[in-house]
Write a protein that binds this DNA or RNA. Structure first.
Lengths: 338, 338
DNA sequence: TTGTAAGCGTTATCAT
DNA sequence: ATGATAACGCTTACAA
């Protein structure tokens, strides 16, 4: 491995001079020297040690992304957005799966701090009344004191920048759409209990039903964010007639599970019952699912942009940015006949 | 940030002593000193700088994963396998999307080298007759000289360890299964042209058809690895009757696209035509797709294990490990009637 | 415009 | 058993 000292020697200059020309400092350098250094560097195939650089400058070009599970397309889209921005800016993405465990989040945040990450993106939603929330918030605060940016992609109380979508409004609007189609009795398949993301969506659904004087017609079923949970919830619906006019799931994957259960039971969707989800993941396109598109990619991208664009943590920037969503009507919903 | 020097001072010992107790060296240390150092370290909330450590030891606890696109579930499963092993071993995963561009792979490999990554996993398949393949191989060789492990997850000529599945055999076996069901005229929807992964799968299909004396009945259609490509290919099939007895797609997502096109056209699957894929991604379960399960998670996990378990690059370990796959018959295939 | 030198936070090699 | 001290490869005052 050729170091800066090698380059300096080959060019016949001091390391400081070599450093100055090679890291684009504004320090004045004669054209001749500059040329000699550049020549030597390219000839020797010099590439600076990111470690040494980070050690001395006390900040690396590393951005951390904490997801619940990268296999979940919700998170992989976010990660893609973040990595696109990060790598375009010469940063590299550190990814960690935390499986919704706050203690794991804390540990990973600490690890990333040990690498002097420029910033960390919290993609997962966190739990309602999480007893560990304070510890995480403290870790975030400590990280900030070392100049590490934190960005949360959901409105959880981390005491950091938030860049998010209004999923409560999203749930509200798709419920409204279902109602506008003439559906009254609507079942909502909830996400994992205790997750903030689930509560927001459930609240949005309930608020809309209540605003439409349909609170009595609202039915919430325990579910989850995955296919199996949606499938199981729909089976319970089928077992206990009458069927609702429409079923909304807390996310697309569960909606697809519900859709499959309904159709397997010979129920016509959207003829007999309409089905909708939230997120607009790829699978929603595959099955023609009506849903609401959340700006996942943009959230990841914008969070990364915040990190790479700002100098090491200005301070307690606690701004919340809400990116917009939009309803996508496809083929699993139809007006209520009659 | 508290450093080793702070801890040493607080404990009234030399940094070297503090270092020895804190990094589990085998050097003899008196119980009393050890206790004092540990006490000071915990009291001060000391956490070692991963950067300084990596700088001096010339290797970090970083493992790089190069995928084509993390949004593609094929890759996210691999990344998950790698990260699980890596983080359990105290390593952190660096993720990079390379969009199938060899030059990007080279650049990212170099970047990871600049962070003294312990190893890099190449998850993407590479191109047939890639003019840049030599440059990549050279970069891999240079990385090895610095002690960086490289592991490829497909059989491309990088001159490094290979941990892979036999996708040619996988394609062969599922074709065989289709034939065993009584299908003769089988259409194969190819993956992206020029990708090694696609060639292997196409070869497997063709070899099986030819071994079954059905070469004349084999039909290959240009396609791709995504839903849209599978859908479009199936539309072309539909437009040009007679329909094949079965259609096999180069991967699950394309198979799902084909399945949707067929069903949208009112064609009964598996009644009139059978459909199968390769990979066994989550979506295959959703739609009940017959496919062959590839050990994606295990490939990622095993590659990471190779990196974290071995000391900085023993040398040109060019071993190839082939993990086993297995056929998963579901509901999109059925015996040919009559 | 260029050079010297002091760190950054570790680990490792000597001494003691 | 413990302590100095020299790296590791870079950036950045401060000098010249």
């Amino acid at each position: 491995m050729t170091s800066l000292a090698d380059v300096a020697r080959a060019a016949g200059v001091a390391v400081s001079t070599a450093s100055r020309v090679l890291n684009g400092s504004t320090h004045p350098i004669s054209a001749a020297t500059r040329a000699r250094v550049i020549e030597a560097a390219t000839r020797l195939g010099y590439s600076p040690s990111a470690l040494a650089r980070a050690l001395v400058s006390r900040t690396s070009r590393l951005v951390g992304v904490l997801v619940s599970d990268i296999v979940n397309p919700y998170f992989s889209v976010i990660a893609r957005g973040a990595d696109d921005v990060a790598s375009r800016a010469g940063y590299v993405t550190m990814l960690s799966n935390v499986d919704r465990r706050t203690t794991t989040e804390i540990n990973r945040l600490r690890t990333m701090r040990d690498y002097r990450a420029a910033g960390v993106i919290f993609a997962g939603s966190g739990h309602v009344d999480d007893p560990q929330a304070d510890d995480l918030a403290k870790a975030v605060r400590e990280a900030r004191e070392q100049g590490i940016h934190s960005v949360s992609l959901t409105a959880r109380d981390l005491g950091c920048q938030v860049i998010t979508a209004d999923s409560q409004a999203a749930a509200y609007e798709i419920t409204e759409y279902l109602i506008s189609l003439g559906h009254r009795r609507i079942a909502f398949i909830e996400g994992p209990p205790g997750m903030i993301a689930n509560r927001e969506r459930t609240d949005g659904f309930l608020a809309c039903m209540s605003d439409a004087d349909l609170a009595a017609e609202a039915q919430c079923l325990p579910g989850g964010f995955d296919y199996e949970a949606g499938h199981a919830a729909a089976m319970r619906l089928i077992a206990r007639p009458p069927l609702p006019h429409a079923v909304l799931a807390a996310n697309d994957e569960a909606a697809v599970g519900a859709l499959a259960a309904l159709r397997q039971a010979g129920i016509d969707v959207p003829g007999e019952v309409s089905v909708a989800g939230i997120d607009d993941l790829r699978v929603a396109r595959f099955v023609g699912l009506t849903t609401v598109s959340l700006p996942l990619y943009e959230m990841g991208a914008m969070a990364a942009r915040h990190i790479v664009d700002n100098p090491p943590c200005a301070g307690g920037d606690t701004t919340t940015t809400v990116l917009s969503h939009r309803l996508i009507a496809r083929e699993t919903t139809a007006p209520r006949p009659g």
